[in-house]
């Protein structure tokens, strides 16, 4: 099963919509509750990252009997230093985004903690692709 969602940069009012729809599907598929929880945390953070940092992006969720693979691909400013971005507490979020309670520098570490595999590739001024895998 493959699900695809479009995410618009800056559209905070719809942030979380993709995560919520994916959660419903995973529940219907009777996926282990603990795995759903982890996937939802990682996916929500990834979705918010596109909203907070990119111009627009596409989230693809592939589900089969052995794994859930999520690909978050955006067009945006990219990440100049991925290692730095992975540090807990490091954030380049704008003051407005921070006021909303986002941009605490916890997003990427949360994604890493809640997935079995995570890979980020990014090109400055072009965009970022994040791949997340949870094995079932």
């Amino acid at each position: 099963m493959i699900l695809t969602y479009k995410v618009q940069g800056g559209d905070f009012s719809n942030a979380g919509k993709c995560s919520s729809e994916v959660k419903k599907v995973l529940k219907q598929l009777n996926i282990d509750h603990k795995i759903i929880k982890k996937v939802v945390i990682a996916l929500y953070e990834g979705e918010v990252n596109i909203v907070a940092h990119a111009y627009h992006g596409v989230i693809t969720v592939e589900i089969n009997t052995e794994k859930i693979k999520i690909t978050l691909k955006d067009e945006g400013p990219g990440i100049p230093d991925i290692n730095k971005a992975m540090e807990q507490g490091y954030s380049t979020a704008s003051p407005i985004v921070r006021e909303l309670g986002f941009g605490a520098g916890m997003g990427l570490p949360n994604m890493k903690k809640n997935t079995d595999y995570m890979h980020i590739s990014s090109e400055v001024n072009k965009g970022t692709e994040v791949i997340l895998i949870n094995y079932l």
């Binding site: 945390i41 929500y44 953070e45 918010v48 309670g101 986002f102 605490a104 916890m106 997003g107 949360n110």
Partner: peptide
């Protein structure tokens, strides 16, 4: 908490 990433996690 007032940090959304903290709550989601």
């Amino acid at each position: 908490s007032d940090l959304l990433s903290d709550v989601i996690a």
